[in-house]
């Protein structure tokens, strides 16, 4: 590769295969090697990501698009080192932080304590976090609910809180997996501004979204995943146009 650009993330032929018992019981995640398959219970393999490779360079912010179930989230989890690729590997200049929709961090604790804990898990000291609780609360727009247990939060409130915790730090590589889709308009604007700020501060942002508008506004490169394959990789306008055409065609 005769390029002088500096790579930040290299994804090398990544496969993710889940082994699942029909009925929903997952067998030890994506890394099971020897699974006994009895005749009665047949193990199903779900090949979520089928050999994806790409290289991301400094200063790129990358949109990830594709239909539901195309392997976007599975790939992002591998990128963040939360799950292991069944085959292949991911290399990165520093550990990416993944922000996804999902459960509350500690459902029985107040939003404020979740801020403290989340920050400390990311490596901040208690002092640092105590000093920044207010700023994070403001950013999340949760002044009125911050003393309530996180289990009482709506999906949107919970996603806002988690984004605010993660965005408090400047990340070299930040992966946002549809987490912002549930936020309201005002919060979307605030978070988008923060993402662009991070990108301009030489950080790399991955944005998984179904909103082509927010992808166009934040990203300068787009990857299109379809059924576990990397279908297309290029500048946002071209890839999004092709994706939209594909969606329209398959609707007819």
């Amino acid at each position: 590769m005769a390029t002088s650009k500096k790579p930040v993330v290299v994804v090398d032929d990544v496969h993710v295969i889940y082994k699942v018992f029909p009925g929903g019981k997952r067998v030890g995640g994506a890394r099971v090697k020897n699974v006994r398959i009895s005749k009665k219970v047949k193990l199903r393999e779900v090949h979520a990501v089928k050999g994806v490779s790409f290289t991301i360079y400094e200063g790129e912010s990358v949109g990830i698009i594709g239909s539901n179930g195309s392997g976007k989230s599975s790939l992002m989890k591998v990128l963040a080192g939360i799950t292991q690729a069944t085959k292949g590997a991911v290399y990165a200049s520093s550990r990416p932080t993944l922000l996804g929709v999902g459960a509350a961090l500690m459902p029985n604790l107040s939003g404020e304590k979740n801020i403290l804990l989340g920050g400390m898990a990311l490596g901040f000291s208690r002092k640092d976090m105590e000093a920044s609780v207010e700023a994070i609360t403001d950013f999340a727009g949760l002044e009125e609910a911050i003393d309530l247990p996180m289990r009482t939060y709506s999906q949107g409130m919970s996603a806002r809180l988690r984004f605010a915790i993660a965005a408090h730090r400047t990340h070299d590589i930040l992966i946002i997996d549809e987490a912002l889709a549930v936020g309201d308009k005002a919060f979307k604007n605030r978070s988008q501004a923060r993402m662009i700020e991070m990108r301009d501060g030489a950080g790399t942002v991955f944005l998984v979204s179904h909103s082509m508008k927010s992808i166009k506004e934040t990203c300068n490169r787009v990857l299109w995943l379809e059924k576990g394959d990397l279908r297309m990789d290029g500048d946002p306008d071209t890839v999004i146009a092709a994706y939209e055409k594909y969606v329209e065609d398959s609707a007819n």
Partner: peptide, 16 residues
Amino acid sequence: MAQYAEANGLKRMGAR
């Protein structure tokens, strides 16, 4: 790929 990544100071993710 692995050599290219390592030559550029990238580390394998998820590795213990």
